[in-house]
């Protein structure tokens, strides 16, 4: 197999999820070659490319598209870029992370090549057989690709631990000539702006610890308590849909079927009832703790440790009694 991995980067640094994508690509079979495609504009994409070139011995090539049109992840130019890369490289597989970027561009690119996409893959059985969750993760579907290729897949990064860098000769980095790309769709979309939440805390998608709050927190102000708890544990803060809908926290904190999927070592659900849709986003966490006043909440059915208590008493007490982060072994 030869796989084109669509990489992601920010501020010149490769995203950890791209390393999960490389791990998934290596799972396709022995002797699979992995080419990483990075698109962007200016020095930052080249910086990310040299990082990718040394990311793992499985990476045999890095392709760079330094093109203003792909700077902000617009799907129309990105889909054409993938089409161009595929035409040149004739890969058997095209693989991306099922991030909001991957979900946005990969199906469009696949449709241009009249291919299906097998999305949100959590397990590779062989190079054409994959397992993916359906019905909010309440069922697992094994799917076999029977087309003539390329096989498009997106992967859930929590299911594929990132490859670790090893000693290697950096892979060659080459640039893709995007000047021949023409499409009536390019130029009909314009990136106007973004509102990105910046935090000192670890990213929700790959934090080792996540503390999540539900509507029972009652206000944005009360989420500060969860932030303090997360900080004590060196973790990230998440939320249920209800908390986001109520305006307590921004949308990028939503954990669930249609929000972020997380699988940390420790997930603490505070004031969250445990609706099917929320569980879909966190039930693969290694250890789940639930704190909720109502002992009948469905969350207690997935929790390893459940505390039926008033969160406004329990959380401050927990913050006080937890060992300091500095005393914790990694």
């Amino acid at each position: 197999a030869s796989t084109l991995v669509v990489g992601e980067h920010e501020d010149g640094v490769l995203k950890p999820s791209t390393l999960s994508a490389v791990a998934a690509a290596t799972a396709l079979g022995d002797g699979c070659s992995v080419s990483v495609l990075l698109g962007g504009f200016g020095p930052s994409v080249h910086k990310a490319a040299s990082q990718a070139a040394s990311a793992h011995s499985a990476v045999s090539q890095v392709l760079v598209a330094d093109w203003d049109k792909v700077e902000h992840g617009l799907a129309e130019p990105w889909a054409e870029l993938l089409r161009l890369a595929q035409e040149k490289g004739k890969y058997s597989h095209v693989l991306a992370v099922s991030s909001s970027f991957g979900k946005n561009i990969v199906p469009r690119a696949a449709a241009l090549l009249e291919q299906s996409v097998i999305s949100d893959v959590i397990k590779v059985i062989d190079e054409h057989t994959f397992v993916r969750p359906v019905y909010a993760g309440n069922a697992l579907s094994s799917v076999k690709y029977t087309g003539s290729g390329p096989c498009f897949i997106t992967i859930r990064p929590t299911a594929f631990p990132a490859v670790q860098a090893s000693e290697m000769t950096p892979a060659p980095v080459s640039t893709l000539d995007t000047s021949t790309i023409k499409s009536e769709a390019i130029g009909r979309s314009e990136w106007v702006g973004q509102h990105v939440e910046r935090s000192e805390r670890p990213e929700l998608g790959n934090a080792r610890v996540v503390v999540s709050g539900g509507r029972a927190l009652k206000s944005a102000e009360n989420f500060k308590m969860l932030e303090a708890l997360a900080d004590k544990l060196g973790g990230a803060v998440g939320a249920s849909r209800a908390a986001v809908d109520a305006g307590y926290v921004p949308n990028d904190m939503q954990v669930g079927q249609t929000g972020k999927i997380v699988a940390p070592d420790l997930y603490i659900a505070v004031g969250i009832s445990g609706a099917i849709q929320h569980l879909a986003g966190m039930k693969d966490s290694k250890v789940i703790v639930a704190i909720n006043k109502d002992a009948d909440s469905p969350i207690f059915q997935v929790a390893d440790y459940g505390l039926a208590a008033d969160l406004f008493q329990a959380v401050p007490e927990l913050i006080e009694k937890l060992p300091d982060k500095s005393q914790v072994s990694a």
Binding site: N138, S142, K144, T146, I288, Y305, A308, L318
Partner: peptide, 26 residues
Amino acid sequence: DFMILEVVEPAKRKGGVMVSSVDELV
């Protein structure tokens, strides 16, 4: 261009326990 081979339930989580205090939880 693909076929669904089978649909199964995910592995069930091992049952958990209720704790009675924050001390016990920690």
